[in-house]
């Protein structure tokens, strides 16, 4: 296993951990931030898979714009998920 492959596995494991945290946390603000991090890691993986166009779109839309839209929605509705 090369160093790059090892890094890819680390990134994927990080993605799984962040996805579980984003789904399980009761604080919507941190859930949104973790989903933005997932987009960032996905865009890194796209670069590794030689798809720089998709990586650019994912980083700009997934990690910046959609995260911002979710944050604006949270700002209006309240930060903590209720039962």
């Amino acid at each position: 296993m090369t160093v790059v492959n090892f890094l890819i596995y680390v990134l994927m494991g990080l993605m799984v951990v962040m996805a579980i945290i984003a789904a399980e946390t009761k604080n919507l603000l941190s859930a949104a931030i973790f989903s933005g991090f997932i987009s960032l890691v996905v865009s890194m993986l796209f670069v590794y898979l030689q798809a720089p166009d998709v990586a650019m779109a994912e980083a700009a839309i997934g990690a910046a714009l959609s995260l911002a839209i979710i944050l604006f929605a949270i700002k209006r509705t309240g930060e903590v998920e209720e039962k």
Partner: peptide
């Protein structure tokens, strides 16, 4: 840069549009 070099380097109108929109979003925030 991304949009002007869209026919030479990776990226193009859609990617650059998202980048520029995120810049304006930061400005508004």
């Amino acid at each position: 840069y991304i949009v002007i070099h869209g026919h030479l380097t990776p990226g193009g109108g859609f990617q650059a549009g998202a980048v520029i929109a995120s810049a304006f979003m930061l400005y508004m925030v």
